[in-house]
């Protein structure tokens, strides 16, 4: 199912979100990244529904910043770096 058209900079759409997912789920924690990306998907969809079609990502970034404020190593926990 095509979501995005193919153009040279299409990778930028994904690279930032991938980075956010990995950090949110704690670096090196595969299950954490999986859970984080699922949460981000839901958060973005909710944002599109309730904030506006062009700014669903606000909710994702707010979620990331809030999470890091309370859990500086992401949701996966583990030892502090």
């Amino acid at each position: 199912m095509p979501f995005y058209s193919a153009y040279p900079f299409v990778g930028q759409v994904f690279v930032l979100m991938a980075f956010v997912a990995v950090v949110l789920g704690t670096l090196g924690n595969v299950i954490g990244a999986l859970i984080a990306s699922l949460m981000m998907g839901v958060a973005e969809s909710l944002g599109i529904q309730f904030v506006g079609a062009d700014s669903g990502q606000i909710v994702v970034f707010a979620m990331l910043l809030l999470t890091l404020a309370f859990k500086p190593n992401g949701l996966g926990g583990g030892r502090a770096r």
Partner: peptide, 19 residues
């Protein structure tokens, strides 16, 4: 935050402000 956590948090603030 340290390392990549710091970097991604700064990116997130800039992107959030833009949005």
């Amino acid at each position: 935050l340290r390392g990549p956590y710091f970097t991604i948090a700064t990116i997130a603030t800039a992107q959030a402000l833009m949005l």
